[in-house]
Structure formats: C-alpha cells, structure tokens
Amino acid sequence: LGKKEIDEELLEELEELFVTSDIGINTTLKIIDAVRDEVSRKVLKNPEDLKNSIKNKIFEILNIDNSLKQVDEKPYVILVVGVNGVGKTTTIAKIAKMFKDNGLKTMLAAGDTFRAAAIDQLQVWADRVDVPIVKQQEGSDPAAVIYDAVVSAKAKGYDVLIADTAGRLHTKYNLMNELKKIVRVVKKEMPNAPHEILLVLDATSGQNAINQAKIFNEAVGVTGIVLTKLDGTAKGGVIVGIVDELKIPVKFIGFGEGMDDLKPFDAKTFVDALFEKND
C-alpha cells in the first residue's frame, strides 16, 4: 500500500488484503464502499488517509468492552463451547492458569464425555496447571458432570469453575440441544450461571465461523469469543464481520499450544496485524 494516489488499483489491493485475511467478501465490500464515498467527497486525500480511515473503522467495530463479567457470587462459572478441534480444551488450561496465577481457586469440569481421551487430555492439563478436576466415565451425561462440578466447587469454596464441552458442529440439532440442557441444569444450582459462555473460534477458519457464531449464540447466548491459533499465518479476519453483526466481544486470543499462550484481545494490535502483508 505504498502508493501516492487513491485509485481503483489501490482499492483492489485492499480488497485482496482483506479477503485473504478472511474478512470475507461481503464485509470487505461494505468497508470499501464506506470509504469509496469519503474518497469521492475528497475527505480522504491520499492512501495514508485511506488506510487510517479504514483502520479506524475496523478498530471501532472491534473495540467493544471485552472485560469478563463481574459477579459477587462464587464460583464464577465459565462454559467453553465450539466446533470440533478449535482449541477449547487447551484454552481452558490457559484460562485456568491465568486465574490460578492471579491467586484464584480454580476447578475444571470434564464436560466432554464423548471424544476419545478427552477426559484424559483435560486431566493432563489439570495436573500441569495444578488444579482439581471433576470428571466421570466416558459416555456419561455431560450436564450431570458439569452440575456435579458446580455443586462441588460451591461446597468447597472455589472461586472459578471452567467447564469443557465436546466439540460439536452448530448444524447438529441434538448436540446443540445437549448444550442448552447443560446451561439449564447449571441454572438449577446457580440461576445466574454460567457467567460467561465463551465460544472458541479457530483463526484458520473461513466464513463458516459466521454461522458458528450465529447458531451457538442463538442456542445458548455467547458472552465472548476466544480466537485461537493466531501463531500461524491466518489472520482471523472473520471476527470483524461477526463482532460487527452480533456485538459479541473477543475476550482472549490464543497463540500457541502452551498454557501461557493466551492474552486478552487487543483491538489495536489485531487491526495492525491485519494490515501487515504476509509474504
């Protein structure tokens, strides 16, 4: 984008940059059309103005309050959901580590009772982070496991409970109902819980993440997004359209397989990275 003038070629370059960041052609055209108007009204005089204006627009979309909800009851219950393989279980380890480092008594619930060795995987993480885990046999009812964990965390005075769930495609009606049941059962014990329902999205994914966000949100009311795998070359641009439309903030980003590879989302850093060319 080192050009002197704003012309069609430059707009096309921007289109390519955005589409290849997975922002999606619809959101991209929306952004470009918005500046096209400012260009024709001579509000934007050179490519630098243009770039700043677009950066600002995207920043404003993404820069919504992304702090964790504050509550005055214990335990603080976080339910982690998403499609298969996006990084839910690993993210739970990272969030648990974060709370533990902040001196909070944290417990995990092995709510993925379906996938082979999902419980063992969470157990390994619980050991590494050094937090207790509530689990049952593979194949048991996930709602029952998570309910038990809420009761146990409450009784033992834990500050935070983070519940894992099995990966599920948003298109699977029964599995989405199972998720609703988990939320219902948790509410029996704590009417305001889960206090956070975090949807994990993989930065590598394309436009399908929009459907994921919409349908998980309709089913259980997502309070925040965690964008994982940003350590690769994918930019995760699909969240721009998602946040714009659903107004669900991105709360954390994941950038590695280790338990310290998690940070609160920062809109400015993210927007700057969008404008860095990859190759």
Partner: peptide, 10 residues
C-alpha cells in the same frame, strides 16, 4: 479441515 479459510493455500 473443510472449514479452513484463505490460509489453506499457505
């Protein structure tokens, strides 16, 4: 993964 976006080429 069939859900992969633009990065699939890289």
């Amino acid at each position: 993964d069939a859900m992969t976006g633009q990065d699939a080429v890289n």
